[in-house]
Design a protein around this nucleic acid. Sequence first.
DNA 1: TATATGACGTTGC
DNA 2: AGCAACGCCATAT
Length: 89
Amino acid sequence: MTEFEERIATVLDELGPGDVVTYGEVAAEAGQPGAARAVGRYLRDHGSGHPWWRVVTVSGRLVPHNEDEHARRLRAEGVQIVDGRVRPG
DNA sequence: TATATGACGTTGC
DNA sequence: AGCAACGCCATAT
């Protein structure tokens, strides 16, 4: 567990219901702007146990692996989903 | 050390 | 708005 990973977990924990952030945002908050891929890698490996569904791509695109499940979790928190993408607001 | 891959982001068209 | 190419960080072989 590196500091970067701990930061990611902390940032995810800082998120609340209805709040959505992008991988880049999480990476930047974690102290590594541009390490969006590292964030995705982390969620893919340690995503379990953290609100990974509140993380989307910069285009509002949901994860291509669980986009259905992802969309439901967001809608369950009041986030509007359109065509598998977070509604631009 | 180098090559290949991935829950990404930005730039150019 | 959508597609393609390159760049970034970290891991696996």
